[in-house]
Write a protein that binds this DNA or RNA. Structure first.
Lengths: 137, 137
DNA sequence: TCTAGGGTCTGTAGTTGATACAGGCTCAAG
DNA sequence: CTTGAGCCTGTATCAACTACAGACCCTAGA
């Protein structure tokens, strides 16, 4: 077994290790997404591998569009492994439904926009199909 | 010609006529999206058909995903018709590009989510493909 | 005439998910 | 010993609203 585990890193190191913004780490701590880490004698935050892993989890979840409240729910399931796969599935499926609805909305918007832009003459005239569509719809 | 034009309506009526939230009207006034309306002797805001039309324009634009800054730009073109169709086209095309990028992002997210959820057993076990994917990716 | 209820007025605070900054410590290198 | 980087804290800012408190005002009914 390799023993590359990091004994103690500081906030800047955690930021670099995860790609997270420095200030965001403090924000996640404030709202309870990340735990209050131990401190050095001079008050510096001290993180380890478990923190790196947890923050990466949070960032991947956010990247997939889970809200912080949803991430909180997922973390609860990570922290308390006595809870079930079925609970996770429900959160993920709800979120998938949201994502699909957003895609449908954006596709409707895309249709309206591209139809309207296509009717643009694009010249110097003050008449404009986009403005007309917005004014008269 | 019909003469159904509304001489003077109040804020609540404007909200009902447009479907806009009551407080949002005041907010749009504060940030200059809607003009400061004339007031009654007792200080009540007094709106007319032009306000209804303008607010509907704003709401349709917002609904199509234009930011308030973009809406401000579009309104500038409505207010000053000496400006050109070409200017509108640029704003709309930029926005269309944004929308298309967002759709692509969401489709990537949808793929990851649905693949992961499909691997869920959905049972009472504490092992979970979603959590594992988020932890180990 | 009094009263009850709605509507409206103002300013201000809260929401989500961060990001930025000021002013002060601490730490390691040269 | 100094210099610069990094860290600490609290607070302000952003978009785009939404909500609330406390004070007016207006109309209808008894």
């Amino acid at each position: 077994m390799s023993n590359t585990s990091v004994r103690s890193i500081r906030r800047g190191d955690l930021a670099r290790a995860t790609g997270c913004n420095l200030e965001t780490i403090r924000y996640y701590e404030k709202i309870g997404i990340m735990p209050d880490p131990p401190r050095s004698t001079k008050g510096y935050r001290s993180y380890d591998d478990a923190h790196v892993k947890r923050l990466k989890f949070v960032m991947r979840s956010r990247d997939l569009g889970f809200s912080l409240e949803e991430v909180r729910g997922l973390l609860g399931l990570v922290d308390d492994r006595s809870r079930t796969c079925a609970e996770v599935q429900i959160i993920a499926e709800d979120h998938l439904t949201d994502v699909q609805a957003k895609i449908a909305d954006l596709q409707r918007i895309e249709r309206v926009l591209s139809d309207t832009v296509a009717r643009c003459t694009g010249d110097a005239a003050p008449e404009c199909a986009v403005i007309d569509a917005l004014l008269d719809a």
